[in-house]
Design a protein around this nucleic acid. Structure first.
Length: 556
RNA sequence: GGCCCCAUCGUCUAGUGGUCUAGGACACCGGCUUUUCACGCCGGCAACGGGGGUUCGAGUCCCCCUGGGGUCACCA
């Protein structure tokens, strides 16, 4: 695997955003290609028309680039083995199917779903493997065509050749699958499109893929692919099957988690806030029936049908129910304010380690250190705390220019009010918030400074604790420092600090006795960057307006 | 259930027969720093799933059990 002839690929299916598991697969492949001057190919596996999500491929490309995983061949960059969308290679697949058919390595089949189900049920009862029973004799091509003419749903199945199949895997070692386990799987669907197996094998051959590095969930497909390769006279590439990534709970990480989070919040609303299915429908912007199916009916024993709600509707519902959607896709982390450096570094460490105590690594270091031999065999859990910690390290490590650029991307992607800030102000905000973990922290720490005065919301707890407590001591302090602020000249952090410090000394007060009321007046809460710098950044007019407004609230 | 894969702190992992009274990181707990929140610094707690072998010696090799996972589609 040190050859410059190494050709690897990442082959996502456009059914949604780029998932973190897929991102790690892409990263590992990319690393492998970069370290030996090989080629990293991106191929879109869009052979399932029904599950295709409009615009998904664009999102996947965008997030791959955000992660810094540019491909050498593929969509938008081209290459000698294109097109790189399987939907544009249908003729090629059909030619191969035809060949298999003519050589007797594949045959037409037109079993109904009921018949297939019956076959499986029977096989299960007989405690043998649930596999398709090959007809004997095989239908002829003419018979298959005739069935098609009659309007039956005809597929093509591959006639799995006899013999056990042994796969040499760089991570698992030798994996042997007995012949009895291998069935005659479908290679061409009745809609005339190839299945994943056929398309994947043909493309890996035609694109000259030398190493297939993918998730372990594909391990059991590999014998099928090897069988196909032999029948077609193809090479068998090398294989490396990656361990899987799970949630901390041990469950599979997926779209479902988002639904579960919202479902819990909605359940709570129904119990405590009088929500009904109708409120769910309204919040999500769907009809009541859909809302009902999504929510399910515990008493009626009807399980929730999460798939009926689109992501957009789910997001609306989440907002209404006050639920936070868990991050699952790369895009979620991007919108949550993680640095690609952090996410990528974390993903790199999931299922692989350098062998020493190094954890924080630049991309270049990872390229040098990475090796298939050091990939872990066991599945890993996705520990968000660890990711957060690593991201924090990266925030501190990255140059201020880089941080600013990443901040702008985040502000734009997340729709933050801070997207409009000019470079100098944005840079100043970043500087004042130093020590933050994600850009979302920056938002919650400094975001309030940039909303219009009338949209500033006061946290009741903060108001009580900082302003009202002790017979309105906080308000008193505010009123007392107001003149000092009004006459401050110049309006600078140093000048303001000098004035307030002197005031505190005279009053025998602690700095905090003034700083906290100022914070609440300025931001509505108890958290902000260092107070004097914050004042300076907010500027005189805004500061004075907010302090006065806060004082007025006291009366009202 | 059949088949396949996996197994070190709560989590990610180091460990390739003796230097393992098992190392690091995150989380957690305690302390320091501090005008808030973070960041940072110091310290602490914490693991070889169980049973058999092999060997002078096993976290490291073999077997069984247990546990976890994947897969059994006209999805990829």
């Amino acid at each position: 695997m040190t050859s410059s002839a190494l050709r690897v690929r990442f082959a996502p299916s456009p059914t949604g955003y780029l998932h973190v598991g897929g991102a790690r697969t892409a990263l590992f492949n990319w690393l492998l290609a970069r370290q030996c001057g090989g080629t990293f190919i991106l191929r879109i596996e869009d052979t399932d028309q029904s599950r295709h999500v409009a615009g998904a491929e664009q999102k996947i490309l965008d997030d791959l680039r955000w992660l810094g995983l540019q491909w050498d061949e593929g969509p938008e960059v081209g290459g000698d083995c294109g097109p790189y969308f399987q939907s544009q290679r249908l003729d090629l697949y059909r030619q191969h199917v035809q060949r298999l058919l003519e050589e007797g390595n594949a045959y037409y089949a037109w079993d109904t779903p009921q018949e297939l189900e019956a076959m499986r049920a029977e096989a299960r009862k007989g405690q043998g493997p649930a596999k398709y029973r090959r007809p004997d004799p095989l239908p002829t091509i003419a018979q298959g065509l005739a069935a098609q003419q009659e309007g039956r749903a005809v597929v093509v199945r591959f006639a799995m050749p006899p013999g056990d199949i042994v796969v040499q895997d760089h991570i698992r070692g030798e994996v042997r699958v007995p012949q009895e386990e291998l069935e005659d799987f479908v290679i061409l669907k009745s809609d005339g499109w190839p299945t994943y197996h056929l398309a994947c094998v043909v493309d890996d051959e035609r694109m000259g893929i030398t190493l297939v590095c993918r998730g372990q969930d594909h391990l059991s497909n590999t014998p099928k692919h090897v069988g196909l390769q032999r029948a077609l006279g193809f090479r068998t590439p090398e294989y490396a099957h990656l361990p899987l990534i799970f949630n901390m709970s041990g469950s599979k990480m997926g779209k479902r988690d988002k639904h579960t989070a919202v479902h819990e919040a909605v359940t709570l609303k129904m119990r405590n806030a009088g929500w009904t299915t109708a409120s769910v429908a309204e919040s999500a912007g769907v009809d009541v029936e859909t809302a009902g199916r999504w929510f399910g009916d515990k008493k009626g024993g009807r399980k929730p049908e999460f798939q009926v709600l689109e992501m957009d509707a789910l997001r609306r519902l989440a907002d209404a129910a006050g639920a936070v959607l868990p991050e699952i896709d790369v895009h979620d982390f991007r919108a949550s304010g993680y640095l690609p450096e952090g996410l990528s570094n974390f993903l790199n460490l999931l299922g692989w380690s350098a062998g020493d105590d190094r954890e924080q690594m630049t991309r270049d270091e990872a390229v040098t250190a990475f090796s298939v031999e050091r990939i872990i065999k066991s599945n890993a859990k996705f520990d968000r705390e660890k990711l957060l910690a690593l991201n924090t390290q990266w925030v501190a490590a990255v140059s201020s220019d880089r941080l600013l650029a990443a901040f702008r991307d985040w502000a734009q992607v997340s729709g933050s009010a801070m997207a409009d800030l000019d470079d100098a102000t944005a840079a100043r905000v970043l500087e004042l918030c130093r020590g933050f973990r994600t850009f979302r922290d920056v938002e919650s720490k400094a975001g309030a400074l940039f909303v219009t005065d009338d949209r500033l919301v006061y946290d009741p707890g903060a108001v009580r604790k900082v302003l009202e407590k002790g017979e309105g001591r906080g308000y008193t302090m505010l009123a007392a420092v107001l003149p000092l602020l009004e006459s401050a000249d110049p309006w600078s952090a140093a000048e303001l600090e000098a004035r307030v410090t002197r005031f505190c000394e005279e009053q025998g007060a602690k700095l905090g006795d003034v700083a906290q009321p100022l914070r609440v007046a300025l931001t509505g809460g108890t958290v902000s960057p260092a107070i004097f710098e914050t004042l300076e950044l907010a500027g005189r007019p805004r500061t004075l307006a907010r302090v006065r407004r806060c004082l007025q609230r006291k009366g009202g």
